[in-house]
């Protein structure tokens, strides 16, 4: 029994079919609980007023935007090394979700930034990095769409994902160098002094858990779709040949 057994499409379909209802329910519960707690049962910030509450969408979305890319990088590496189709398809499935999270982070950031900084858009390093990350997602997805042969597409997008990751990190530092920015420091960090206060901290944690679970749910769903689509493609290709 090894973990790679789950990379078999059939095993994956079985396991994910079993797991899907659970993660779906859990993510809905966490999101509802965290957001309701956060929106209605926490006090307004003494400086930012009630606008601070967008943190419950903004921070988890931003975290997942980056985590989705990391997940794509890991699954791409697994595909390159071990040639498990499910891995490549999971990377493909995660891209639009990651892109949507990036978009949510950007939009909520703009909505938050308007009352705080007096502008919808600021060329702040963090915002700019997310905009660049958004472009990386676009390019990655466009490459998947453009290539007909699914294995070639999986290979090339994996290479792009790896090279892109290096350049995404480089861009992050380049952008930091380019403009120091208005954005507040990290909302979450291991250093207790820097953290947001406990009142906001707990609902935020639940929201983050909710977003992670939501991401898992969506990736499982989309990967299942991709596996089925891939199967149809394989059958059609064989039919054409026969």
């Amino acid at each position: 029994m090894s973990i790679w057994e789950y990379a078999n499409p059939k095993k994956f379909m079985q396991t994910s079919a079993w797991a899907l209802p659970w993660v779906t329910v859990l993510s809905v519960l966490c999101l509802l609980g965290g957001l309701v707690w956060g929106f209605f049962f926490t006090p307004d910030d003494y400086k930012q007023g009630s606008t601070v509450k967008i943190i419950y969408l903004h921070v988890p979305a931003a975290m997942m935007a980056i985590n989705a890319w990391v997940m794509m990088l890991v699954t791409s590496l697994i595909w390159i090394v071990r040639r498990h189709h499910v891995s490549a398809l999971a990377a493909k499935a995660a891209a639009p979700i990651g892109m949507t999270f990036t978009l949510i982070a950007l939009v909520t950031g703009a909505i938050w930034g308007q009352p705080m900084w007096g502008t919808w858009w600021e060329w702040d390093p963090r915002l700019t990095s997310f905009l660049i990350l958004f472009l990386f997602y676009l390019g990655y997805m466009a490459l998947w769409e453009a290539i007909e042969n699914p294995d070639t597409a999986a290979d090339l997008t994996s290479v792009l994902c790896m090279v892109g990751s290096v350049f995404a990190i480089l861009s992050r530092y380049a952008v930091n160098f380019w403009n120091q920015g208005l954005h507040q420091g990290a909302s979450l960090s291991l250093d207790k002094e820097e953290n947001v206060s406990d009142v906001y901290w707990f609902p935020l944690l639940i929201c983050i858990a909710g977003f992670v679970l939501l991401f898992v749910t969506l990736v499982l769903l989309r990967t299942r779709t991709e596996i089925r689509a891939r199967r149809i493609q394989a059958l059609q290709a064989r039919e054409k040949l026969a």
């Binding site: 499409p9 059939k10 379909m13 189709h85 199967r231 394989a234 026969a242």
Partner: peptide
């Protein structure tokens, strides 16, 4: 041979075998 004729399964046939 195609799998229905007893040929080897390709990487993606096992999923629904």
């Amino acid at each position: 041979r195609s799998p229905s004729e007893g040929g080897a399964l390709s990487a993606f046939d096992e999923a629904f075998a």
